[in-house]
Amino acid sequence: MTHASDKWEAAFLVALWSIIVLVTVITAQRGRKYFIRRIPGLNAIDEAVGRATEMGRPILMVPGLSGLGVVGLQALTIFSYIIKTAAKFGNRILMPVADPALYTVAEEVVRESYASAGRPEDFDPTSVYFLSDRQFAFASGVAGTIHREKVAASFLFGDFFAESLIFAESGQQVGAIQVAGTVQTTQLPFFIASCDYTIIGDEYYAASAYISREPTLLGSLVGQDICKGMMLLIVVLGTLALSIKPLGEEFFFVQWFTIK
């Protein structure tokens, strides 16, 4: 097991960053206004839903192989916004799921999104469905759905592995507008090559704040940026320390952040 006592310096940073995020959340909740920069991939969501409406074809949302964790829940938060937008225009949605635990939550989120949009009667229980928890069985199921339904828009948010390109290229083949985001950095090049918009890195976690403009989430985002600034400072100081000969690897600051 990994414990804080294995590397107190790292544990201290985790605690400090947690406090920073909580403080910025509280200040945002108390009314402080924060600015959030434009994220083109998230702006494209409305465009993609509009296009699906014009074409009269369904919208596909795939949370990848995500389980019931932060990545999967974040994907559902983004999908919730997409569904609310789609529900206003009467678009049909499809959400194949690979993880049974996430499936149960996804069904509830979709139902509530329709209710929030004032269209609870439009919720189709068969629009959210469990396919398979086997990677390539799921991939073939989703690829089949894309080709059969000729989806107009495809949103790929969550954990993706080798199957990412199968989804993205299948979407390309049917001419779907595609927006993708994943925390798996190895899959980002595939999405960038095949999708119209790709959410990169921590933009994935910024999505819910960007979409909802909820103070709690905006505050959290600002906290993340402060933490990233600190991380950048650590990297610069570490690089300088390693580059200056009298300091080197034995310098206490470098030793703090060296994993042994």
Binding site: V14, W17, S18, V21, V70, V71, L73, Q74, V183, T185, G201, D202, Y204, Y205, A206, S220, L221, G223, Q224, C227, K228, M231
Partner: peptide
């Protein structure tokens, strides 16, 4: 991603 994951 790590810091974003921590925040969420």
């Amino acid at each position: 991603l790590g810091i974003g994951g921590l925040a969420i």
